[in-house]
Design a binder for these strands. Structure first.
Length: 474
DNA sequence: ATGTAC
């Protein structure tokens, strides 16, 4: 049983004990903490703190909940030079799952009369669900390799977007150190079929409108004016990333004894960053990251075409595209020294502070847009990275699941949910009954409360809230 | 999250 101490408001501590090398630090209010009788996420934070090379603390965001090995909402950094490990469970099965936000040159009042037509167009042009179909049909492994190496940049080179899009993508659309060589044939086969598809679960494409502005200066820099229509796309690397994770976990479980590594949970399988298995995973993960970015690039382009056909405003501007399931090699100050760290963010969004060199020049003065999708019908937040964040420049990634999918379907029905959304003026397209019910907002934490913790804990700044107008679900 | 199962 994990003992939690409230260090100060919005910040809880798990003292190191047993094999823990560092404390656990959880950003939350009492109400947002998981209930240990139903959700093992706090025990998972303590388990992550045992990993070789971990520095500072095993962190958890206020939207944390139980995941595979690591909690979702977890942030853990290991010191590469000190034999620090990389763990596929610290990234998650949906490698490079993330969010892209595009801005239309359109006020929501002017969209309303054509909303149904727009949603019908998106319904047709956004492949999703378990069934086959994707925007881009690949014919060869060579073509897939270009995506794995070039990400959104390759998609844009092939005409699926505008060069300016890349300035607003994390890593400018492509991670440099991707190497498809180590990716298995099964992952490749799955990847061939799904570039430009949404998937299912909590993935979605949502039409939204700016409803509240909290920080005028940053909102202006981001282009978020009251009533502005936006498109938020939440998806990842589909079956390809899933297969790469599955393969790497298996490989590392077999390799750990060779490196003298033992972990309290088999799902925490890991290998030193500087090992054959560690390097191979990071190279394959980077390739999946590029696949995920190309995927969102293609779906953004599909949205542009639908907007163009229906509203004549196809010129959607990309605000930002950022992953919330990724491990990155980054340089941070730890204990007064500069260290090269492998930072795992699983259900945690990168949140670069103002002035950071990785930001495009026009965003550098205000910090990185942090995109936080809420549950269905609740809307989303745009936050901004702040200086001196306490968890390696990370923030929350969403509302955070509170009930399991199984529990969620018992609370309501698809018909009820659909009626509630429509009564609230939100158009819904193409969700399976089961999928829709599993995503009921009752199954999620209170997004406003989660975001407030991020602000109060110094993780990010509130910029604007987006209200949902129409949702396309898998 | 996921051809919801090796």
């Amino acid at each position: 049983m994990v003992q939690l101490v409230e260090e100060r408001p919005y910040r809880w501590r798990i003292e190191p004990e047993g094999g823990m090398r560092v404390p656990g630090v959880v950003f939350a209010t009492r109400e947002l903490l998981p209930d240990p009788s139903e959700d093992q996420a706090l025990a998972q934070v303590a388990a992550v703190a045992t990993l070789r090379g971990i520095v500072e603390a095993a962190y958890a965001m206020p939207d944390m909940h139980w995941g595979y090995g690591f909690p979702i909402g977890g942030v853990a950094a290991t010191d590469v030079a000190a034999g620090g490990v990389v763990s596929p469970g610290g990234v998650g099965f949906d490698i490079s799952c993330g969010v892209r936000l595009l801005l239309a040159d359109l006020h929501v009042d002017d969209l309303r009369p054509r909303l149904d037509k727009l949603m019908d167009a998106l319904d047709v042009s956004v492949p999703r669900g378990m069934r086959k179909g994707a925007v881009w049909r690949l014919h060869s492994q060579a073509e897939l390799e270009n995506i794995l190496a070039g990400g959104a940049r390759y998609a844009v080179e092939r005409g699926h977007g505008e060069p300016g899009d890349l300035e607003r993508c994390e890593d400018r659309g492509a991670v440099a150190d991707a190497d498809p060589a180590g990716i298995g044939s099964r992952a490749r086969e799955r990847g061939l079929q799904q570039v430009g598809s949404l998937g299912s679960g909590n993935h979605f494409l949502e039409v939204e409108a700016v409803a509240d502005v909290y920080d005028e200066e940053i909102a202006e820099a981001y282009g978020l004016w009251q009533g502005r229509v936006c498109v938020m796309i939440h998806t990842g690397s589909r079956g390809l990333g899933h297969q790469i994770c599955t393969d790497a976990v298996k490989t590392m479980q077999a390799a750990m004894t060779r490196y003298g590594i033992s972990v309290p949970d088999r799902q925490l399988a890991c290998a030193p960053v500087e090992s054959h298995e560690g390097r191979a995973y990071l190279a394959a993960m980077a390739a999946a990251a590029n696949y995920g970015r190309a995927n969102r690039q293609l779906l953004g382009q599909a949205a542009r075409q639908a907007f163009d056909r229906v509203t004549g405003h196809g010129d959607l501007t990309l605000l930002y595209d950022v992953s919330h399931n990724l491990a990155k090699l980054e340089t941070h100050q730890v204990d007064g020294g500069t260290r090269r760290l492998c930072v795992h963010r699983k259900g945690a969004t990168l949140a670069l502070p103002p002035g950071h060199a990785d930001l495009p020049p026009d965003l550098r003065p205000v910090g990185q847009p942090v995109l936080v999708p809420g549950s269905m019908g609740v809307g989303s937040y745009v936050l901004a990275g702040v200086p001196g964040g306490p968890a390696f420049a990370s923030a929350c990634h969403g509302a955070g699941r509170r009930l399991s999918r199984h529990q969620a379907v018992k609370t309501t029905s698809a018909a009820t949910l659909r009626a509630e959304l429509e009564r609230a003026g939100i158009a819904v397209r193409g969700a399976s009954a089961r999928g829709l019910t599993e995503e009921t907002p009752q199954a999620y934490k209170d997004l406003d409360a989660v975001v407030e913790v991020c602000v109060q804990a110094g993780l990010a700044r509130k910029v604007a809230k987006l209200a949902p107008v129409g949702v396309v679900k898998g």
